[in-house]
């Protein structure tokens, strides 16, 4: 547990001092959403209808941006080898890396989402649902992404490859995330959709660290 906190604290400190990764993800999120505003011609009703889907898709792409760097820096400077030599199980280390990654990229997206929602004319009734759904959905994206990041460590064109591997696996989260936000718009209860998202998160939490650790072991050996 101590090592878990130490890794998270260390990664957060690095991210804070560098600052670029976090800002890139949020900046991309805001810019892409703005582009949709221009692309759809600024018609408020058309924007409102598409807003939930647009926000989810841009959030999904934004959270994928920094995936490539999740292990790459540690791999290049050798600190990954050091981490793997500690007594702590590699699965736990994966969990810590994923948690730090989510705090630096997923959490800012959730904070920025209401702003984007206002810009895209999403009805304010749906904001709570949108943020709740993102809160359950983005950690799942990070956990699935950790598998992709570990698999492509050291690959040629790793960044492009990661999207090909990870995006298909993101689809269930996207479907249920948009559904949760849209049911909130229609005024119906959205518990079932949120529960499905929560279920995905728990399944990913239980399984993804093992898959990512296995992928990392064969990448580094």
């Amino acid at each position: 547990m101590a090592i878990l906190c130490a890794i998270i604290a260390n990664d957060l400190r690095l991210a804070w001092r560098r600052g670029a990764d976090t800002l890139t993800a949020v900046g991309f999120f805001v810019l892409a959403a703005l582009l949709f505003g221009f692309g759809l011609g600024g018609d408020p009703s058309a924007l409102a209808r598409a807003a939930a889907g647009l926000i989810w898709v841009t959030a999904l792409l934004a959270s994928m941006l920094a995936l490539e760097r999740m292990f790459a820096a540690d791999f290049e400077d050798g600190s990954l080898d050091g981490l793997m030599m500690t007594d702590a199980p590699l699965e736990l280390i994966m969990l810590a890396k994923a948690a730090a990654h989510w705090i630096t990229t997923g959490l800012p997206l959730i904070v920025a989402a209401p702003g984007i929602g206002l810009m895209l004319n999403l009805p304010t009734d749906a904001f709570a649902a949108l943020m709740l759904a993102l809160l359950f959905g983005t950690p799942t994206l990070t956990l699935i992404g950790a598998i992709g990041a570990a698999l492509t460590l050291g690959a040629r064109r790793g960044g492009v490859l990661i999207s090909l591997l990870v995006l298909p696996l993101y689809i269930p989260v996207l479907i249920f995330g948009v559904a949760a936000t849209e049911t909130a718009l229609s005024g119906a209860a959205m518990d079932a959709r949120l529960m499905a998202l929560g279920g995905f998160f728990l399944a990913a939490l239980a399984l993804a660290p093992f898959a990512a650790a296995a992928a990392l072991r064969q990448a580094v050996r």
Partner: peptide, 14 residues
């Protein structure tokens, strides 16, 4: 896409 990812990943390493 999973199939395509498998093929691409296999060819992506030296």
């Amino acid at each position: 896409f999973l199939y395509l990812g498998l093929i691409a990943l296999r060819g992506a390493f030296d």
